[in-house]
Design a protein around this nucleic acid. Structure first.
Lengths: 233, 233
DNA sequence: GTGTCCCTACGGGATTTCCCTAATAGCGCT
DNA sequence: AGCGCTATTAGGGAAATCCCGTAGGGACAC
């Protein structure tokens, strides 16, 4: 199966897992995992080809809170080989457990950053000699990169996963008022710029806070940025 | 030359342009261009294999402000073929001029989003039939993706380009105060939580505004999010 | 015709933020 | 030891924001 042709698939978790399985088969990898983080709700979506036993164990040990193969690549642009993480105490701890499930401490994580702050991460692992791993990594990294982008793009467009906080509707005036707030303008300034009363600006901003479930205007600005309503300036 | 081996090069604009030239030679493309944007300072860094004449003309016409091959891909995760942009009035206008410089309106733009809101974009163009372009695109997209990530990562780590606003340093208390501000807490709330005076919180927030060159607290929150200091909640 | 949403605007006052000012402690450098 | 800088702490008063409520007109869908 042509892995780039993901768009034609029905967008369900089962099919995404199948996609990862096919990726492993094609690229001679042991396991692959994908996760996406919404930075507003801190919700994580993930699916992988790991065994159910390891998934349960991983969750029970709360490794998702400390596993550096998740957290450190998310601060990177380039793919991160797990070799770089091997000195990390948390890494050793996670893979001490992982060894019991036949999972090697050798792999690669590829982060994909979305335009609104969301992050996707594909991690793959293969149990083999270092020499073999270096050759394999060189061969597959381009295709993995493409697969990561494709998968992340598809997940972000998917409704069937019930992804994160639903994007509320903001009217054009609300967006305008909020964009200028994010740009450092006061409500009085914005009123002057839009030739409307600052009281009207106040109402728009209040409605934005309500729609984004924000307690304060700074919080609303933060949420609006990650949802793509406004851009920081 | 192995294009992935960029890290070994001296990180200067001349070498980046050479990198793009080699990329064009290897992948049978006419031109390639790279630009990076810092969304806080709005500063753009770019280099390309276009002729000096076109570069000058492009700047003189201020196309960088309207060119959809720059702006629209930056809102995407996946690569964007210029076919999608061809109905755009601004696209037609730019390429009406570009035709005089032997630049085709057929190409591809690949955005790379960094973890702190910065965006890199590689665009490539090739003058050929549609059929040839579709085949070429399929062949090169993985390698271009990898090259884009590598180039962007290298540019972001480069000092010699004097890249944009240096990420200022925020003290731990400043980050703490700002994170809770972004989470919707008032300065009084934060004072209670941290068991310090709300006046102290006020000072921390003021220093953050100063360091991030923000006029208001909402603006500071927006900038802090894209710089990775805080996460929206 | 009715209901809903959007946009507009205001009164009154409470609350919060912001500006200006100021002090102490710790650290690195000379 | 002294100086300069950063980090952290905090008060008075002015300005801005926010809350709560009220309300009219236009566009649109039913």
């Amino acid at each position: 199966m042509d892995i780039v042709n993901l768009g034609a698939l029905e967008k369900t978790e089962a099919n995404f897992t199948t996609f990862l399985s096919d990726l492993c088969d094609k690229l001679e990898l042991d396991f692959a995992t994908y996760c996406a983080v919404n930075t507003v709700s801190d919700q994580v979506i993930g699916f992988s080809t790991y065994s159910d036993g390891w998934k349960e164990h991983y969750g029970a040990q709360r490794f998702q809170n400390t596993d550096p193969t998740l957290h450190l690549p998310m601060r990177s642009i380039a793919p991160v080989d797990w070799q770089c993480l091997s000195g990390h105490e948390d890494f050793k701890k996670v893979f001490e457990h992982a060894r019991d499930f036949n999972i090697a401490d050798q792999g690669l994580s590829i982060p994909i950053h979305g335009p609104y702050g969301e992050i996707g991460l594909i991690s793959v692992t293969r149990d083999c000699s270092s020499d073999t791993w270096i050759k394999l990594r060189k061969n597959v990294i381009s295709e993995l990169q493409t697969a990561a982008v494709t998968l992340h793009d598809t997940v972000m467009q998917s409704d069937s996963l019930g992804y994160a906080l639903r994007r509320p509707h903001l009217s054009s005036r609300e967006c305008e008022a909020l964009q200028r707030t994010a740009a450092g303008k006061s409500q009085i300034d914005i009123g002057d710029i839009l030739t409307i009363s600052s009281r009207t600006v106040e109402v728009h901003v209040r409605f934005v806070r309500t729609k984004l479930c924000a307690l304060t205007t700074p919080q609303a600005v933060g949420r609006a940025i990650t949802m793509g309503f406004v851009h920081p300036k």
